[in-house]
């Protein structure tokens, strides 16, 4: 059974369309990255999962439980790090976790949870005195309580330092190992790239792409950039390189003593062989793969 099923969900706020006929299925055991610039509607969809927002059209379900009509059943399968929460100022970190344990009828040691998210030392401090990053860790800890089948994390890395971001990644991997499905949103691409099996790109309320990272790369052209350091390069050679199948463009970069080529992944070897046969001395080379960033820009500028 699919962990998340979203069918034709739309949500309008006045004249603003937050979600426009979104269809999405996330399979059990998948790590799904939900990408989009700020204000694209990512949190709105997550709020539909939690029944904070009622869609104007369509439906969403978590493990087959309708998010609106069976919200408690749906939520009992989820661990959630929501957007725009506030912690209880007067309760300690440990009390927060104890509260989550009680709510989910889980059997786990609060200190073990706090240890996992790295705030064990602050367990008995009031959460009102926590920094943004500590509060974020605390709420992530609450989400992990009870080994939920689905983790929904809304911008989990916001407010965290690089060390914290790495810890989040570790947690996501550990959860996947355990068999959980992870759905997390981010506007930061490399974070998604690092841990996700599949990504969806939301732009202006529309899901403009859903694919694996690799698939997305290919659909954007799958171009690889080759940076080849050479002793010299004549224009004639570059023309020959450009005529090869799979090569998009080749041009000299005299300042860096380089020839730069954009081509498909498969054509890389052909390029090097052609240069070599033409008597060009290849001193070094490296490749730059199209980053998710470029893909992202491509999708989000082409969609409007």
């Amino acid at each position: 059974m699919a962990a998340i099923t979203v069918e034709n969900v739309s949500k309008r706020y006045g004249t603003v369309t937050a979600l426009d006929r979104v269809d999405l299925t996330v399979d059990e055991g998948e790590v799904f990255g939900f990408l989009g610039p700020n204000g694209a509607g990512k949190s709105t969809l997550i709020n539909v999962f939690l029944d904070f927002v009622q869609p104007d059209d369509g439906r969403a379900a978590i493990f087959g439980h309708d998010c609106q009509s069976e919200s408690v059943e749906a939520k009992s399968r989820m661990g959630v790090l929501p957007d725009g929460y506030t912690v209880y100022d007067r309760l300690t970190g440990r009390q927060h976790v104890e509260y989550a344990i009680e709510a989910k009828e889980a059997d786990v040691e609060p200190m073990a949870v706090l240890d996992r998210v790295g705030i064990r030392d602050a367990a008995d401090q009031r959460a009102g005195g926590y920094s943004k990053g500590m509060a974020q860790r605390l709420v992530l800890g609450m989400a992990l309580v009870g080994e939920p089948d689905l983790l929904v994390l809304d911008e989990p890395t916001s407010g965290l330092d690089p060390h914290g971001i790495k810890q989040i990644r570790t947690v996501i991997r550990e959860e996947r190992e355990r068999g959980a499905t992870v759905f997390f949103s981010s506007h930061i691409l490399e974070q998604v790239e690092a841990v996700c099996d599949r990504v969806g790109i939301l732009y202006d309320g529309e899901l403009v792409a859903t694919d694996t990272i690799e698939g997305l790369r290919q659909s954007v052209g799958g171009t690889t950039k080759l940076l080849i350091t050479v002793d010299r390069a004549e224009a004639g050679v570059l023309e020959r390189v450009e005529s090869l199948a799979g090569v998009e463009r080749a041009w000299p970069n005299p300042e860096a003593n380089r020839v730069e080529v954009t081509c498909s992944n498969d054509a890389k070897m052909d390029v090097l062989i052609t240069l070599n046969e033409a008597g060009v001395d290849i001193e070094n080379f490296r490749t730059e793969e199209a980053s998710l960033e470029e893909m992202f820009v491509e999708y989000t500028s082409g969609a409007s």
């Binding site: 939690l50 059943e73 009992s76 929460y85 506030t86 509260y99 709510a103 709420v139």
Partner: peptide, 11 residues
């Protein structure tokens, strides 16, 4: 309230 309703509680 967001935090509370993220747990399996109804309104």
């Amino acid at each position: 309230m967001t935090l509370l309703l993220s747990l399996p509680y109804s309104r």
